[in-house]
Design a protein around this nucleic acid. Structure first.
Lengths: 345, 345
DNA sequence: TTGTATGCGTTATCAC
DNA sequence: GTGATAACGCATACAA
């Protein structure tokens, strides 16, 4: 007597809880309870464990999710992993989330609204337990649905005001304030900034830190020193070019993100300018190679691992107490790593 | 009359296919067929679309997966995302996989066998459609189960021989051969290598390329010039230190991965050595900052986007023809990016 | 504690 | 084409 094991997908039929119950000689409910860590009579437990081992049974999380409405999957959408920041966050996040028995379903949208929508649709359809993302103003309405539907939402890196969500950010303004102060302490007065998108909270806050530092020292803001770099390497390149073409160019530049720092360094190299001799440069975001740069690049280091830990902490808390929690916001401090890319004027 | 909408998880009850069928005034089967793109009478189609819109219904992929045994999720395990390579691969992979209507469930194991097992368990439990990973010898038995169970498997970066799986690699040996040849062409004869793990196919092949280049020029292999760097930055640092402490140190070093290059650069900087004046250096793996380095670092650039595309191509082919395919292996060529980190001797 | 029975939201197999 | 209905594998309320 042969059993047809052919499946629509061509996969072998996996043993089910019923198989386990049968070979263990107990009821299916008992197996289920064992699986979920309830108290079981010792003899039965041994039987079940033996059966599971023998059949190499593995609980079908899909079927379980249908009952419990818990998939143990957490959605993560980011604009890109190219930019080292998100990659390292993912590295740590995947680890800390793992410890809570979950995994990350990742989606990369490249700032394309259509793909972002698609990501949210996909996640909604997959019934993820929670959503982690960098805020994006364009998604407000769509995210309102998500929240209303009961899916916990966690923003990091970039805020999206008005939504009931947990949040993890760094003190962008404070850190920017401090690096620019460092420049001021060295005697610089003509300080340019490579701005990210000022519509993003992180872009705006980094700019505000710059603004505040100058204002405190009674240095008037020079509009031509404020260059939009659009977060990108090419934007940073062009912005640096514009700044350096000024009749009275800045003696120092604050690049408010890693890709823009890359752009600035690119322009400088292409034009034979040396850091810090021809220009002092500080960067928001630190990467390993900055230490190895000729002079060393002074940079704001975000506490990437702590960010990931904080996100997970909020996630776990929220998931264990679905409703009875007010949204929390965690703000982490950055370190300023002083290296050799600035000089006294 | 109030309906209790409270759920075990505290989430709002989502509309189901039944709700859609009711408000559209058709049978549930009809809705299902519409959802799956089958032919539907025009009037019904309009009714259904209207109902879906009105209820903002979204198909429960979990329930669907239970029937179809297709989750549209692809597992990805990597040792780390810290190392830019995997991050960029993920970037491209998430995009190309998205185009096929799937998403990546990611797991990061940090080379810890326990966590790797855990990842495989988790994936198996979640019934992923396919698994993408870097090969690891320790997982052979466990992966055999995976394959036997019918889950398509795709290796990249590092092979694991003997398993029926699709594969995407770069021509590690050829690329290494060419960079080392470049060093030889410049007159170097004392060439050191920072090796990765020789148990990994990529580590071994990169070494073999080095070996082959020297042998072809009749330069005997000098064992003390072959330094194990264990793939890591600290390993690369130490290995460089050992090499440079030799009575007759190499005039050039081939660092066979980015982290090890980082380590080499670190040691050189700490010891006031200049590239290429005091030492010529070439790297396997290219990153944006290498162009911006003082001299520019000559490097092997892996075609990251093509790797991702190739993986997805194999994935889609395999998923659409479950059984009727023999495993394929795709090998991609690397570019050698000549910059200023080498000098003629 | 254990067994039994019901339902979760789909898809698929029937007759119609 | 369409409508009813039986699975899919599991968790749980209920009765024992």
């Amino acid at each position: 007597m042969t059993v047809d094991e052919s499946r629509p997908t061509g996969r072998k039929r996996s043993p089910t809880i019923v198989d386990v119950a049968n070979t263990a000689g107990v009821a299916i409910g008992t197996v289920s309870r064992y699986l979920n860590g309830h108290k079981i009579r010792r003899g039965n437990r041994d039987q079940i464990e033996h059966a599971i081992e023998k059949l190499s049974y593995r609980r079908n999380a899909v079927a379980a999710a249908m009952k419990t409405e818990l998939t143990h999957m957490v959605g993560l959408t980011v604009p890109t992993f190219n930019y080292e920041f998100h990659g390292v966050i993912l590295e740590h996040l995947t680890r800390s989330v793992r410890r809570s028995g979950r995994a990350l379903l990742t989606y990369c949208h490249g700032a394309d609204p259509k793909i972002m929508e698609e990501a949210l649709d996909f996640f909604a359809s997959q019934r993820i337990d929670a959503l982690i993302m960098t805020g994006d103003a364009g998604m407000y309405d769509r995210l309102e649905e998500v929240v209303e539907q009961g899916t916990p939402l966690i923003f990091y890196n970039n805020d999206l005001r008005g939504l009931p969500a947990d949040r993890v950010f760094v003190d962008n303004r404070g850190a920017s304030h401090r690096v620019v102060q460092h420049l001021l302490d060295l005697g610089h007065e003509r300080i340019g900034i490579l701005c990210g998108d000022l519509g993003d909270s992180s872009g705006r806050e980094r700019f505000e830190g710059y603004e505040q530092a100058l204002t405190e020292r009674r240095i008037p803001l020079e509009p031509s020193y404020i260059a939009a770099g659009g977060w990108t390497t090419s934007g940073g390149f062009d912005a640096t070019k514009r700044l350096m073409a000024l009749p009275n160019p800045p003696t120092a530049i604050f690049a408010s993100s890693y890709p823009m720092t890359l752009g600035a360094l690119g322009w400088l190299k292409d034009n034979g300018k040396k850091v810090p001799d021809d220009l002092s440069l500080v960067s928001f975001d630190d990467v390993p190679l900055f230490r190895l740069h000729e002079a060393g690049i002074t940079a704001v280091a975000q506490p990437l691992e702590e960010i990931a830990e904080a996100i997970t902490e909020l996630l776990v808390a929220r998931l264990s107490q679905p409703e009875h929690r007010v949204p929390r916001t965690i703000v982490l401090d950055c370190d300023i790593i002083l290296r050799g890319s600035t000089r006294r004027i």
